[in-house]
Amino acid sequence: MINLEGKRLLGCEHPIIQAPMAGAQGSDMAIAVSNAGGLGSLPCAMLSVEDMVSEIKLIKAGTDKPYNLNFFCHQPIEYNEAEHQVWQSKLMPYFAEFGATPKSLPNSANRTPFNHAIADAIEPLSPPVVSFHFGLPDPELVQRVKSWGSKVLSSATTLEEALWLESQGVDAIIAQGVEAGGHRGMFLSDDITTQVGLFSLVSQLIQVLKVPVIGAGGIAHHKEIQALLALGAAAVQIGTTYLLCDESRISSSHREALQSEAAQHTALTNVFTGRPARSVVNRVMEELAYMSPSAPAFPHASIEMTQLKALDSLQGGTNFASLWCGQNATGCQAISAHTLTKRLANG
Rank of each mutant, 00 (worst) to 15 (best):
residue 236 V to K: 02
residue 58 L to K: 15
residue 254 H to N: 07
residue 188 L to A: 01
residue 157 T to L: 09
residue 106 P to R: 01
residue 117 A to T: 15
residue 118 I to L: 09
residue 235 A to C: 02
residue 55 E to H: 09
residue 38 G to L: 13
residue 165 L to N: 04
residue 110 N to V: 13
residue 197 G to H: 10
residue 9 L to D: 12
residue 23 G to N: 11
residue 124 P to S: 06
residue 144 R to Q: 14
residue 327 Q to I: 02
residue 166 E to R: 00
residue 51 D to K: 14
residue 19 A to V: 10
residue 145 V to E: 04
residue 53 V to Q: 05
residue 240 T to M: 08
residue 221 H to K: 13
residue 238 I to F: 09
residue 221 H to D: 15
residue 312 D to W: 00
residue 319 N to Q: 14
residue 333 Q to W: 00
residue 324 W to Y: 09
residue 303 I to V: 15
residue 221 H to Q: 13
residue 344 L to Y: 07
residue 215 G to W: 02
residue 9 L to W: 02
residue 195 Q to S: 12
residue 250 I to W: 00
residue 6 G to N: 01
residue 218 G to A: 10
residue 311 L to T: 08
residue 251 S to L: 04
residue 50 E to C: 02
residue 309 K to V: 02
residue 115 N to Q: 08
residue 40 G to A: 11
residue 198 L to K: 03
residue 142 V to S: 03
residue 173 I to E: 05
residue 228 L to W: 05
residue 23 G to L: 10
residue 122 I to D: 09
residue 304 E to A: 15
residue 151 K to S: 06
residue 237 Q to S: 15
residue 282 N to T: 05
residue 232 G to S: 09
residue 261 E to Y: 00
residue 306 T to F: 04
residue 345 A to E: 12
residue 225 I to P: 03
residue 99 G to R: 10
residue 216 A to W: 00
residue 233 A to Q: 05
residue 78 E to H: 06
residue 255 R to V: 04
residue 161 E to N: 04
residue 52 M to S: 04
residue 257 A to T: 13
residue 214 I to H: 00
residue 245 C to A: 14
residue 160 E to M: 02
residue 17 I to M: 03
residue 115 N to I: 05
residue 227 A to V: 10
residue 104 S to Y: 12
residue 123 E to C: 05
residue 47 L to P: 11
residue 16 I to F: 07
residue 167 S to I: 09
residue 93 P to F: 06
residue 276 P to Q: 05
